[in-house]
Nucleic acid binder design. Sequence first.
DNA 1: GTGAAAGCGCTAACAT
DNA 2: ATGTTAGCGCTTTCAC
Lengths: 323, 323
Amino acid sequence: MAHAAGVSAQTVSRVLREPDRVGVEARTRVEAAIERVGYVPDLVAGSLASNRSRVVGVIVPTLANAVHASSVAGVSDAVGPAGLEVLVGTTGYDRAREGALARAFLGRRVDGLIIAAGALAPGADALLRGARLPVIQLWELPEDPVDLAVGVDGEAVGAAVARHLAGRGYRRPALVEHAAPADTRSAARARGFRATLAALGLPPPRGLAAERPWVMEDGAALLTPLLAGERPDCVFCTGDILAIGLLLGCRRAGIAVPGELAVAGVGDSDLAALVVPALTTVRIPHYRLGLEAGRRLLRRVAGEVVAPRCLDLGFELVVRDST
Amino acid sequence: MAHAAGVSAQTVSRVLREPDRVGVEARTRVEAAIERVGYVPDLVAGSLASNRSRVVGVIVPTLANAVHASSVAGVSDAVGPAGLEVLVGTTGYDRAREGALARAFLGRRVDGLIIAAGALAPGADALLRGARLPVIQLWELPEDPVDLAVGVDGEAVGAAVARHLAGRGYRRPALVEHAAPADTRSAARARGFRATLAALGLPPPRGLAAERPWVMEDGAALLTPLLAGERPDCVFCTGDILAIGLLLGCRRAGIAVPGELAVAGVGDSDLAALVVPALTTVRIPHYRLGLEAGRRLLRRVAGEVVAPRCLDLGFELVVRDST
DNA sequence: GTGAAAGCGCTAACAT
DNA sequence: ATGTTAGCGCTTTCAC
């Protein structure tokens, strides 16, 4: 390539990266040669030489869930214009994969890492703390993040729902959460819900756990155990899909919502506004989570010190017909 | 690292990539040293030396649309177990970005490329044909793909809906498609719909175009122009979101569906089964599209010749209450 | 403003 | 079974 333009390799490199520092004549010659030869610079070699890859890694549980996919979309939209590429890895909700993926991404010399996990698996945590790499933990707000965190206060979400239900006059609450303790998001919401009920003088909620909180039918199946024994008058599901499943179950069983049973979820999935009755839920800014994470990562990659270390993006209780 | 284990760099490399060809004693020494030093091999340098990056590029319009996100999930699930990483790029539905992204990915020396675009922009097409790289075009089935294609026959989709509506006895069809001609998927469905109506002796459908087919409210807004003049008795939307918006518009306006107006969509979005009345639509295997594309890409990366070059994954007409 | 030299951390090819 | 020798195609540093 340098030969085709009759200049040295450095000059080609400069034309590509800092054109201002090259004479006009040399520059036009190089540009013409690039066009003519169809030259595509080797970014791999560039990364090795410069020790900067211009790639950011993003680790999420899955892309099949719109919640995480739109976070990744946010990251992509934030860093793309700055010329960074996005390498995605999915764990399939398996915490052990977090460490393996983080390791693989470190090996690719990513310039930064965004990982959708509050508390990291111990191995991954140590690895990243040792790596001196810009890292953003997404979704949750740990006490002591590896580097930075962007998320939503899960306990506050549960608390807001508890206050709403209590304010509506419901007195016999129930709670459906994710069975896997690794799902710390669900756990935080449940914790806040329970604590606030107690503070308001309501009885502790009957608790149920779902193995697969992303399967709507599993929500419908929870109706029977939920109604056994003393019947609750309201139920909080830590995720929308289960709440919608429950709603469908109620429709089939002829149980009036919210007359006999009020239902609230979290996530404000596209479905929530459309089901009948429309679901009361909590809107979490999925896309903005990714967008802000991407923006903060850019600043960290540029070497800035970013404060505060934990950014709480907040949420919005969306009251609809189901409560 | 090699020094820490008291062996040559080559032996370390072999322990990592072909452990069988290393003596037990050397291997254990190296493994211990790796653990002790916390060594993370530099895959960038490895890529440069071996000329294989173990990265595949995926280009989609957006990740904010579940349809595309789940295709990427399929790709990730297909290639991840083989040790390949996924680099994603989003065009934001801007065809010009296709070429730029393809170029950037080529520069990263990706081992293969999956691109969710039927007919590529001319520049991108020439670039990829010249690159002698495994490439999978996703979603559509071009006559002459750059390399391989995995998709669904859009004309057949439109034809199936036309036959269904005609069979139900509807006689005054309408059609809502995406205004952007760059959306060749929408165009193919519309083409098949029109051709089949003609073949069945029905009048050409009244045509409407939406600028933003991903905005539900825009679907609702189409109701007024749709009903002006001679009123259609059925309408085919080339995407579910508009169809659902239309359904909502009908509910507000008190128009009976399917009594006064039958509505059909494409995509079998999660919403389609839940809206009232439940939407008749066409199920497209989004996830499998990505999965099969990933699998075929793996085979191509391994140097296999894959036939047939175009793989049609088919679709399923899902008849529900709206027609 | 431009070029020459050195080397980034690996792997391929060839020894031994 | 292991080591040695040469790069991979850039960027960095320093000279001019």
